[in-house]
Design a protein around this nucleic acid. Structure first.
Length: 496
DNA sequence: GAGAATGAAAC
DNA sequence: GTTTCATTCTC
């Protein structure tokens, strides 16, 4: 059994950082065992003619011996490790293990990246663009802010807020892979939407593919009996369906369409930070039902005129952002249904006539990116009619749609301030520090992203970087002086 | 400083 | 899931 001696500071740890005050970590059970193992070996070797066993070999033997021990045999060492850890805590109050990352952590193969990472990506690209350089890969200068803080740097309340902020996600973030195809980060946010007839009820079961795999090839097919995995929109792809009606599947507010009747028969899946997921059935607003826009005649010339879009329209009132919103990843479908719930039912006919081929059929909805002409926080939902009962695809931007203007979702997971949240005088002072990103020039992407919409996307990032900059996340990039007087506390969880 | 082992803790 | 660092000491 290991003696309860305090381990002497190793030469390596003593040198660590050249810091004489460095406090080594408490040993774990195996290290206590290994120390004893080494000691026993040394004692046995005293009377031996053999040369001392190299430490490497000893470590291997100790590891094998440790594995050979039963749990009962290991218990004294585990107990001792607990005791040592307890003593360590008592002798070093306030101690916190702070490993230093010497190399950037490997990017997760799946899962969404943080908004902050995306902002950093944008900033990096913008700088590179201004310098006429290609973006540097992750791990470059701008990835520094993603690594752990300096071990000995004080943790201020602001730091805490900052970290919780960085872990929040927002569905209002533009998809950088689309707006900025050369982003060093890949957008991995995947949603699964299955027809009710195929989907299991909420809870366990075969369920969707967690963290949908992303094929490395430029073409991807993915199908399972209960799950349709739709790859990110930056890749051309084919979908295979086992017959029947293909599901509405969407992962970006671009170009995917679905008819309203179908919308109500589908289930959506959202992932949460804690790894859980929930199904939900989009709720069609009473207004939508009332107008029954599933009927083609609804789009006849007898459409009622409605208000002009804009802040004066009560329907455009933006709800107060909630600090208690769950940290969830919202799918575009949830976004759409939420938008519909706010929709006042009014429709705006198109300025020009619908093409004859689009004169009938079942109307479909297309979620479009925000347009800069609209007040911030509002997205247009465009209703188009199509001969096909269902259409799906990318690059199917409505050419001459009937337009419904609906307020955007009141689910806003972005607790960072937006320009609209700033004091009026600040809003007047502020001028965007950069031009909107240029339209993508990649062939397929060009068909998907409407360059005219880029400013709207840029706006969201711009406002977010404003918020980040106010917390010194991107110092020396923006002149944040106009925002010095802003109280951001409403957007943060700050312990009193 | 690397190397061997295992596991706690952080990220 | 990945990385660091606890111990030890030789190479």
């Amino acid at each position: 059994m290991a003696s309860p001696q305090r381990p002497r500071q190793s030469s390596r740890s003593a040198r660590r950082n050249d810091n004489p005050n460095h406090v080594p970590r408490p040993r774990n059970a195996f290290f206590i065992f290994r120390c004893e193992f080494t000691r026993r070996h040394a004692e046995e070797g005293k009377n031996s003619e053999r040369s001392p066993t190299p430490e490497k070999i000893l470590s291997k033997r100790a590891g094998a011996a440790w594995k050979a021990l039963s749990e009962e045999d290991k218990r004294p060492y585990r107990d001792e490790a607990r005791e040592e850890s307890k003593r360590h805590g008592q002798e070093n109050p306030g101690y916190r293990y702070r490993p230093k990352r010497t190399k950037p952590p490997k990017r997760r193969a799946t899962g969404p990246i943080s908004r902050r990472e995306q902002v950093e990506s944008l900033v990096q690209m913008r700088e590179s663009s201004a310098a006429g350089l290609l973006p540097s890969p992750p791990g470059g200068p701008h990835s520094r802010t993603s690594s752990s803080p300096e071990p000995d740097s004080p943790v201020t309340p602001r730091d805490s807020s900052f970290h919780s902020l960085a872990h929040r996600r927002s569905m209002s973030l533009p998809h950088l892979d689309m707006a900025l195809p050369s982003s060093p980060y890949s957008y991995q946010h995947t949603h699964f939407i299955t027809p009710v007839s195929c989907a299991s009820s909420p809870g366990p079961g075969p369920g969707p593919l967690r963290n949908g795999r992303r094929a490395s090839s430029s073409r991807q097919r993915s199908y399972s009996p209960s799950v349709y995995h739709i790859p990110p929109p930056d890749l051309p792809f084919d979908l295979e369906f086992a017959g029947g009606t293909p599901p509405f599947a969407s992962f970006a507010p671009h170009g995917s369409t679905v008819s309203l009747p179908e919308l109500g028969s589908m289930q959506d899946l959202s992932y949460y930070d804690d790894g859980s997921s929930t199904y939900s059935t989009p709720q069609i607003s009473p207004a939508a039902s009332l107008y029954d826009i599933s009927q083609p005649e609804y789009f006849s010339e007898s459409l009622p005129m409605q208000q002009e879009p804009g802040p004066s329209n009560p329907a455009f009132h933006r709800r107060q952002r909630s600090n208690t919103a769950p940290s969830a990843t919202v799918s575009p479908l949830a976004f759409l249904s939420s938008s519909l719930s706010n929709w006042n039912g009014e429709a705006m006919p198109p300025p020009d006539l619908l093409p004859p081929s689009r004169g009938g059929g079942v109307p479909t909805l297309t979620i479009s990116p925000p347009e800069p002409s609209l007040s911030p926080g509002h997205s247009p939902i465009q209703v188009i009619t199509d001969d096909a009962p269902f259409s799906f695809g990318f690059g199917m931007s409505p050419s001459s749609p009937t337009s419904l203007i609906a307020p955007s979702a009141d689910i806003d997971f972005d607790r960072t301030p937006r320009r609209a949240d700033f004091a009026p005088n600040v809003q007047e002072l502020y001028a965007p520090p950069y031009a909107p990103p240029p339209p993508p020039q990649l062939g397929f992407m060009q068909a998907v992203v409407d360059p005219a919409l880029a400013p709207g996307e840029a706006y969201a990032l711009e406002s977010y970087t404003e918020g980040l900059g106010a917390f010194d996340i991107a110092p020396a990039i923006y002149d944040m002086s106009p925002f010095d007087d802003i109280d951001f506390s409403d957007f943060l969880h700050v312990s009193p």
